[in-house]
Design a protein around this nucleic acid. Structure first.
Length: 135
DNA sequence: GCCAACGTTGGC
DNA sequence: GCCAACGTTGGC
């Protein structure tokens, strides 16, 4: 079981959109590193949903429902998508500022490489963010 | 709105 | 293969 953090601009696709749909396709990724991370995802893996630009906070938890397949938004064979299902909205969103102010998260890819849209996250960081969301 | 960080492109 | 130019992302 691996843990991930996926970013989306909420005015393009928000966690509420995913809740409404019940299942979503995480597509449109056009970055090799992010693509490689998509390829490593397996059904059952858990992923945090982060709102970039607007909100700038971790807002939800989802599960990978389908392993990587050809990105349906392009014919270009280089790009992949995965299926995701919402698990729950976090009781309290966890802001990026909270993570940045805590040395425990200094190695978090979200903090270190803010532009990567699909990233792995350690179980320790994953658990800690969920704990913060319930505080 | 600005700008730093970063990835991609294309000329050489 | 290098690197300058350029475009995009995303935090501030």
């Amino acid at each position: 079981m691996n843990y991930w953090l996926l970013k989306s601009e909420p005015d393009v696709y928000s966690f509420d959109d995913l809740l409404r749909e019940g299942e979503g396709v995480w597509d449109g990724v056009r970055n090799y590193q992010a693509r490689n991370n998509l390829r490593a995802m397996l059904p059952g893996d858990l992923a945090l949903f982060y709102h970039s630009n607007i909100g700038m906070e971790v807002v939800g938890l989802m599960t990978v429902s389908a392993a990587a397949f050809q990105d349906p938004t392009t014919d270009d064979q280089r790009w992949l998508a995965v299926g995701v299902k919402p698990v729950k909205k976090l009781e309290k969103p966890v802001p990026l500022s909270r993570l940045k102010s805590d040395p425990f998260f200094e190695d978090l890819t979200l903090v270190r490489h803010s532009r990567l849209s699909v990233m792995p996250i350690s179980q320790a960081h994953f658990d800690a963010i969920l704990a913060l969301s319930q505080a």
